[in-house]
Design a protein around this nucleic acid. Sequence first.
DNA 1: ACAAAAGTGTTCGATATACACCCATGT
DNA 2: ACATGGGTGTATATCGAACACTTTTGT
Lengths: 218, 218
Amino acid sequence: MTATVTVDIVAFALQGDQLQVLLVQRKFEPFAGRWALPGGFVLQDEGLDEAAHRELLEETGVQGYLEQLYSFGRPGRDPRGQVVTIAYLALLDHVPTPTADTDAADSRWFPVKSRPELGFDHQEIIDYAVERLRNKFEYTAASFSLLPARFMLSDLQRAYEAVLERPLDKRNFRKKMLSLDILVATGALQQRGISRPGELYEFSAEKFATLRSKGLAF
Amino acid sequence: MTATVTVDIVAFALQGDQLQVLLVQRKFEPFAGRWALPGGFVLQDEGLDEAAHRELLEETGVQGYLEQLYSFGRPGRDPRGQVVTIAYLALLDHVPTPTADTDAADSRWFPVKSRPELGFDHQEIIDYAVERLRNKFEYTAASFSLLPARFMLSDLQRAYEAVLERPLDKRNFRKKMLSLDILVATGALQQRGISRPGELYEFSAEKFATLRSKGLAF
DNA sequence: ACAAAAGTGTTCGATATACACCCATGT
DNA sequence: ACATGGGTGTATATCGAACACTTTTGT
């Protein structure tokens, strides 16, 4: 009748054209040596979101966008007994170097598409997180948390393409993004390799709040 | 480090033009005498969905559509200590008479719009459930679980209007529903009061599965 | 001159919205 | 005949999809 409650974090970040997920290699049983999601026990007098923030901070040293995903409690999912985990989705605007963790042998970012076999039911949790992220990208303006403060429109498009795993038409994409009226041109240019420099944009927090109130942004 | 885990059920059903929610009056402390969501502890070796189904069955005597909503674990949300609750959304196709429950003084259906003050953080949970239900109605074909097997198009429209709390245009509504291609006309007619009888429709399970695979139905 | 990525408009089909009258039945 | 709710079509606006060439820069 009393179960243990953990939080597990599915942290995503973009590296080049690939969506990456943060995994830790377990030092102890169960699943010692196996890769798994970062996470841990919810402490006494700690809220769920609070625990998730703490775990994310412990593993990466950074804060990021966090949202609760789903709770998993199938009997037998943890060999130690009845453990219910509250899974969280985290979005980071860069790929931080993972922090050394006392009960992890190692921790690394893996491309979502080529991740190792995981312990517990963590494959299922990541699949669920990827699906949620795709939905957020399809229906809302969720991309911002995965990008730095200033970015080119082509970066934004690459973010969408990495998440949706499908090419997008450049002209339609730009038209749509600009029509949402949440981007502001900074006037600054950035050059990437040997080609024409592109304009840097920022997200407008105010415009964004308007969208959010209409349910079109996270 | 070990918390207690409960499930709470937000069970909705339609009565006339009103969306109703099932509440129980608590017999014991905390919040004795107050209305609250039906729910209870997750048992040893019981999955979360399983616990939710059991609780729903215990309170209503019926099964229904169930989906996990969100987990709530704010410290202090339950005076007895660290209690994390996994909230579930239940949709029933009629308003069953609540089952007598040993630790409830009473249980009743209330219109969502005029419900009593609730114990714990259950107001918040219901608000969340209503929002989720609206989203499901806006973006998917979720209405079916709230209706009997056969219904008139006007019943379907009433269901949407009750949930969305906004009038819909009859012609556009019918056109859209029929174009989704998940309704089959039975040929049978039904009369409601003194007026022209209307045709009864059913949902097509096969067509429905197609929609579902495209993410357009639950 | 060429390679590489940035930038730019128009057409077409599909979908959502607005809107008003006739029909079948019971009293 | 009238009250009640069932049933029907068209015109317009909006949104997403398809599609190709020019510009700026570095080598």
